[in-house]
Design a protein around this nucleic acid. Structure first.
Length: 505
DNA sequence: TTGGGG
């Protein structure tokens, strides 16, 4: 069965260009256009209409059935469409179906949608289309079909008839899209180094999608720059009971995945506000750049993360996009520098002179190149030595009298972070003697530790220490080793060594 | 006839 306008014959079939939408308000129309952006499914509040549903087997002797009344809580998603006549902001279409499975699963932004019998409405002076589950239909086609004759839809809702006119339109849109660049201003897409809490657009490379817990998905996004360091608000006295997390996810990424990720530049975790099914993430292909529209950016325990909300969208982004090319070039410039592994925030002045904050510690290996904590985590061997620029964001114990074991040796655990990762690193025995310059007494050890942690002496005098602290970037040497010979990777630990806290002013 | 937008 072909889908046609009601009361029309084949000759009345009309395919609307988006430019002409404003002249067809409240009419049912057919549209073939490119999906520029799309959101993920969300449950609607319901139509407000009661529906009667009978339970089979509940009929009484007179044939009356008993049942219950319920709302249709449909699923909805919003797409934004463009065509050659209307590509500045495009036109929104709201699609309602009974379940998320029936909604369009756009394989790639830039694919083509055929919409039949959708109704045009106005909302705050903007025209949009509404797709009703009982009367409308859609079909999705590849946007970048290499083959001119590829008119096989990869998803259809209800029945759709494809006329010659429609095929010509699909071909026309495919050709037009090849040379079309969505006008994306760099300033509308802050880089990770520029982010703040709030709602922003982001352009980044998809590195991985991972289900850390059932229905708890994370998308790993990277743009080659470093997210800014955050103030730390955790209670130092409580680090032993409530340690600062090493990562946002409840489980760290498996090592084989971790080792495929870039070691320079921050990796932003994007979580989903609403429950999400795996097949809705098909569009996020590892290695492809994507534009995220209206992502909420937040900080948890000093770690940046993004939230894909019910108002967020994914936007079509070819890898040859101007904005993407610009970001890729910035990254290529960065990794060609000697300071490639240094946190962007640690180098406010010149790349040749170390900023003053890096003078809090002195390390014995001046001529060794700095690496990132992701280099440390993904190193191919368990036993290794590194030099990194990090912030000491937590320490345990923090109570001065417990810095040493009963035998009088140093034993503490520091939490280190850089823009790429967080790790725990121990300070043990002679490495502690190097770090604190022997055993200068509890008060002095605490003063030195506070310099690392960014706790000012004035803060320290407050009994309940809940003031945010802002640790400085410091250079440290890190040793990677194993505790158990039978499980070298499972028992891998890190220690600080050959690092000394220089006496402060 | 559910939502759109920020």
């Amino acid at each position: 069965m072909s889908v046609r306008l009601r009361n029309s014959n084949r000759n009345d079939y009309k395919l609307l260009r988006l430019r002409d939408a404003h002249s067809c308000i409240n009419q049912r129309v057919n549209i073939i256009a490119i999906v520029l952006e799309f959101g993920l499914p969300k449950t609607t509040r319901g139509t407000g209409n009661f529906h009667f549903m009978s339970f089979t087997g509940n009929d009484d002797k007179k044939g009356r059935s008993y049942g219950c009344r319920f709302y249709f809580n449909d699923q909805c998603c919003t797409l934004r469409l463009i065509d050659e006549t209307h590509h500045q902001i495009g036109m929104a279409v709201n699609i309602f179906t009974e379940n998320a499975e029936s909604l369009p699963h756009v394989a790639a932004a830039g694919d083509i949608i055929q919409l039949c019998n959708v109704t045009l409405r106005t909302h705050i002076k903007e025209v949009n289309a509404v797709f009703y589950k009982n009367s409308s239909s859609f079909a999705l086609y590849r946007g970048n079909g290499d083959d001119d004759d590829d008119f096989v839809p990869y998803q259809v809702y209800s029945k759709v008839f494809l006329r010659d006119e429609d095929k010509m339109r699909i071909n026309m849109l495919r050709k037009w899209l090849v040379n079309f660049q969505i006008p994306a201003e760099s300033s509308d897409f802050p880089m990770l180094r520029e982010i703040k809490e709030g709602h922003f657009n982001l352009a980044g490379k998809i590195l991985h999608c991972w289900e850390a817990l059932k229905d708890n998905w994370f998308v790993y996004v990277w743009d080659g720059t470093d997210t800014p360091p955050n103030a730390i608000t955790s209670m130092l006295e409580d680090e032993i009971n409530h340690p600062l997390p090493l990562q946002l996810e409840s489980l760290p990424l498996p090592r084989d995945v971790l080792c495929t990720l870039p070691t320079v530049g921050s990796i932003l975790r994007i979580a989903f506000e609403l429950p999400i099914e795996k097949n809705h993430l098909n569009v996020l292909k590892s290695g492809k750049w994507a534009q995220f529209i209206n992502i909420r950016l937040k900080v948890y325990a000093g770690l940046w993360y993004g939230v894909f909300t019910s108002h967020s969208k994914l936007r079509h982004t070819p890898n040859e996009d101007r904005l993407i090319a610009e970001r890729q070039r910035l990254y290529d410039d960065r990794i060609s520098l000697k300071s490639r592994n240094m946190p962007i925030g640690s180098m406010p002045q010149s790349i040749d002179s170390l900023p003053e904050s890096l003078c809090i510690t002195k390390v014995n290996h001046d001529h060794v190149r700095h690496l990132t904590l992701m280099d440390v985590l993904t190193h191919s061997e368990v036993t290794a030595k590194f030099k990194c620029v990090v912030r000491v964001v937590a320490a345990v114990p923090y109570q001065g009298e417990k810095f040493c074991t009963p035998a009088g040796k140093y034993m503490m655990r520091l939490t280190l972070e850089d823009p790429t990762a967080r790790i725990h690193a121990f300070v043990v025995d002679e490495d502690g003697e190097t770090l604190f310059d022997g055993y200068p007494g509890t008060a002095n050890v605490k003063r030195k530790l506070n310099r690392l942690l960014g706790v000012t002496e004035c803060d320290d005098s407050i009994v309940v220490n809940d003031r945010p602290r802002n640790p400085a970037w410091v250079s440290v040497c890190i040793k990677s080793y194993y505790v158990s010979k039978s499980d070298v990777w499972g028992s891998r630990n890190f220690r600080i060594f050959d690092t000394k806290i220089v006496d402060g002013p």
